[in-house]
Write a protein that binds this DNA or RNA. Structure first.
Lengths: 191, 191
DNA sequence: CTGAGTTCTTAACCCAAGTCAGGAAGATAG
DNA sequence: CTATCTTCCTGACTTGGGTTAAGAACTCAG
């Protein structure tokens, strides 16, 4: 049940068996049904979660509009960091697009980990750094690429997503309306 | 000379005097002349820097085009994290728009800090987390706001920037061409 | 003070994305 | 299987940003 998670952890740095056991003792296992929310906008996000199976849609709610910022597939970490760290209401909702298995760490467990040993502090740093780098790449794509280029890039980098995520959410991630994505798909067909 | 930096550090967590001294012993002081580069695209970024005075422009170079991603004013931290952490060529240049005083930590010094004590490891984590949250806000603005809204927001949140940074760079940060910023400024004049 | 270079604005035209409306295709529940 | 709902596509029209070109305003070195 925790094999994938353990592999993921050891990708950041090498933990001893004891450290892994301690880490796992902090974890909770949770299933989120299809279309249920792992986090609802306005709530305080009190967890970080590892996606063991399934996938999540992370989206902003602005007035009557939704803006999907990203999709978390298996073997990724998710949380509304600003809400989690500052204990303030979340500006996003996180929805399971399929039945999803999460391994979650509550706020208090995370702090216990940080206090317990330096290796967990380091892990937290490495994770925040990795998240930052990933986000910076995403951000630079918005500055330097057109919607069409962002579409073709996503198609190439995450082809699997197109089989599991409705196009309207993919359009939103790219920063356009579904109608525009249709047009882009029409004019780039074959590519 | 280090007063502002020390205040900045203690904003993340409380350091003892010894920790501060050790931290400062790792630092180097550097002046970057107006229009000189603190980092050049293609180089490996081997530092993180605290902007003690002046301001920096952080921009992507894509073919013959530049895309300014952000401006670092006094009392902020900057680095090309992906380059710094992964020791790979930087995809950005960082230019001083005024004569700028930096307090920098080289890669090796940063690692020495992390190894020395848990408190520095924690500081590194807190800093990466803060950078992430900041970037996430920026990112959500690209998804959920129009260029005009982003302009008005920046005008409100960073009015000082408009006195020190050419509008063409501000246009680029907002994700538009200078001509479009002119039009936006015209139609929102007075607001 | 002057002249050269840069920055900023304006105008005209083009084009891609937004919007609105309708319909086809696909999924789902009964 | 059918009826319903959602997703996706298409077309017509609007809108706002990109592009090109030009000139005005500003900077700065000599």
């Amino acid at each position: 049940m925790f094999d994938k998670l353990i592999k993921n952890l050891n990708g950041y740095l090498s933990f001893t068996e004891e450290e892994i056991s301690f880490f796992l003792s902090l974890c909770e296992y949770k299933i989120v049904k299809k279309y249920d929310l792992a986090l609802k906008v306005g709530q305080i996000c009190d967890f970080v979660a590892y996606v063991n199976k399934g996938l999540l849609r992370y989206y902003y709610v602005a007035g009557d509009k939704e803006h999907t910022a990203r999709i978390f597939l298996e073997d990724s970490w998710t949380s509304e960091y600003a809400s989690f760290l500052c204990k303030k209401p979340s500006s996003v909702s996180i929805e399971a697009l399929e039945e999803t298995e999460l391994i979650i760490l509550r706020y208090d467990s995370v702090q216990r980990g940080y206090d317990k040993a330096k290796v967990f502090e380091r892990f937290g740093r490495l994770m925040a750094e990795a998240l930052f780098i990933d986000l910076e790449n995403r951000n630079s794509d918005f500055l330097t690429k057109t919607p069409e280029e962002r579409y073709l890039l996503l198609l190439q980098q995450e082809p699997e997503m197109f089989n599991r995520v409705p196009l309207k959410y993919i359009a939103s991630m790219i920063g356009i309306e579904p109608e525009s994505l249709s047009r882009i798909r029409k004019r780039t067909a074959g590519r």
